[in-house]
């Protein structure tokens, strides 16, 4: 294994583009090192992005949005009052990843690029309408977060492309992310649900609902959002929301949960997350 420490994303991209074997980018390492140790993936080239200027920055953009560098850790996001106030659901979702120790190192970009359908921060990012900035051999592009994973462990990124940052729009309402795990900590999500919505008075004017761990990729569930828009979160739209969330599920039976359980709990979490997001949007 060759270990690289480029000082620009262009260089990182060039190394990856030129590499012939397995390539991995290293930010927090909380997935890459587990895979290395478990003999699942031994990269030929490991490209550490932490020496690139700006990767640890959380910056507010001119339009009020947020740009979060590729190596910003969960703990650094939790410590950022402005980001927490604007996107509490995204920050809390990232905070759910692993332990205190993992929080010191784990990143949202890593969580996204690991390609797990159960990644905690990804449904929150999708609900928030986040985009990723991608540097590649042909320059820089932006893509919606939901368009990046294409299946478990698979991404839509081309050879040599690397995510340099994530972008959140200006906070305009409220967001929330909830997951179900059997213990109180340290588990992978059995089901995850992100909700972001805006209100005009009591009425929901826009909404995005996403689900994790219930399909090969994180899902953006349009029918669930439709159930919310125009409502005051009364019983009927909440029931529609749960039904839409459950209907969108295409899960598997595995060691972490059954199809039946995931399908049911997706609806439960959608309702609970929607209530939190609704309260936050009204605050």
């Amino acid at each position: 294994m060759r270990y690289h420490t480029p000082d620009s994303f262009e260089d990182a991209s060039a190394i990856a583009a030129a590499a012939s074997g397995t390539t991995r980018f290293l930010a927090g390492g909380t997935d890459v090192l587990v895979q290395l140790r478990s003999d699942l993936v031994e990269p030929d080239d490991l490209i550490d992005v932490k020496h690139i200027p700006g990767v640890k920055d959380i910056a507010q953009t001119a339009d009020g949005g947020w740009r979060i560098g590729a190596a910003v850790s969960g703990a650094e996001m939790m410590a950022h009052a402005g980001l927490r106030a604007a996107w509490p659901g995204v920050v809390e979702a990232t905070d759910l990843i692993g332990s205190t120790q993992i929080q010191t190192r784990c990143t949202m970009v890593g969580n996204l690029c690991n390609g797990s359908p159960a990644a905690d921060s990804v449904p929150a990012l999708v609900a928030a309408g986040a985009t990723a900035t991608i540097v590649g051999p042909n320059g820089t592009r932006e893509a919606a977060v939901e368009d990046i994973p294409t299946g478990p462990g698979r991404l839509s990124l081309a050879k040599g492309e690397v995510v340099s940052a994530l972008n959140l729009p200006a906070g305009h309402g409220g967001d929330a992310y909830l997951r179900f795990i059997p213990r109180t900590e340290m588990d992978i999500a059995v089901v995850g649900c992100g909700v972001s919505l805006a209100r005009d008075g009591d009425v929901i004017t826009s909404a995005r609902v996403s689900l994790g761990a219930v399909a090969p990729t994180v899902l953006l569930v349009a029918d669930a959002a439709t159930a919310l828009i125009g409502s005051r979160l009364e019983e009927a739209p909440l029931a529609q929301l749960a039904a839409a969330a459950s209907a969108a599920c295409n899960p598997i039976d595995d060691k972490r949960g059954t199809i039946k359980f995931r399908t049911h709990v997706a609806g439960v979490l959608a309702q609970r997350a929607a209530k939190i997001a609704y309260d936050r949007a009204g605050a």
């Binding site: 909380t30 090192l33 587990v34 120790q101 010191t104």
Partner: peptide
């Protein structure tokens, strides 16, 4: 705190 097993 950091897990030293998850850092090179």
């Amino acid at each position: 705190p950091v897990c030293s097993c998850l850092m090179l």
